[in-house]
Amino acid sequence: MAHAVEQEYTTTGLNHRKLLMWVFLGSDCLFFASLIATYMVYRGQSLVGPYPNDIIDVPVTTISTFVLLMSSFAMVQALAATNADNRKATINWLLATALLGSIFIGFQIVEFNTFKNEGLTLGGNLFGASFFTLTGFHGAHVTLGIIWLLALAILGMKGRINSKTALDVELCGLYWHFVDIVWIVIFTLLYLIAGFDVGPVAIPGG
């Protein structure tokens, strides 16, 4: 039984799956830090446009950021409902989280399309290359999370999610919240701070 697995011997007193998820999230920090640092290194180094100020739409992205923050709220409610053995609420909150995540991805698809039509491409300039690589990998993380949430919702409908298997929901929640905090960083750096860059700028000390 799945439940029996949680009682396995451990020297730390911690569930192995949960520890593993935190190890993964810790290492995923390195992945995103490299991409974010690459963006910052190439910031203002594009020789041709479009530059961030030409195309970045901060108000629209503020809305999608809000949507992603709210999805994290829905996620904690899904876990609370699971712990309370409230099956219907669990499924609804899981689906709500997946829906909010999908709206975020919808915003990103529209954004990518608009940028492409305005001339920003992966191979066009350094801004396009570093921007699409970073936000694209984040979008891929969100998409994976949506699939995970939907799979949990289906398990819930089959009656397989309850307070005894709440760890399944908790792990998905940890992943989901992590994707949210990565976006908090990306939104601040790429949109609020670097979103108004108008062209090639001198790098400090350069």
């Binding site: 730390t12 911690l14 949960k18 520890l19 935190w22 190890v23 999230l25 810790g26 290492s27 995923d28 920090c29 390195l30 995103f32 830090a33 490299s34 974010i36 640092a37 690459t38 910052m40 290194v41 790098i203 400090p204 000390g205 350069g206």
Partner: peptide, 29 residues
């Protein structure tokens, strides 16, 4: 311990990011 594992990753990530940026800024272009 869970927090320590994550913060360790986060600290390493911060160092990697700073090292990358410092490396390139030091190149003067």
């Amino acid at each position: 311990l869970l927090g320590a594992v994550f913060i360790a990753g986060l600290a390493l990530a911060f160092l990697v990011g700073m090292a990358l940026i410092a490396l390139f800024v030091g190149f003067e272009g």
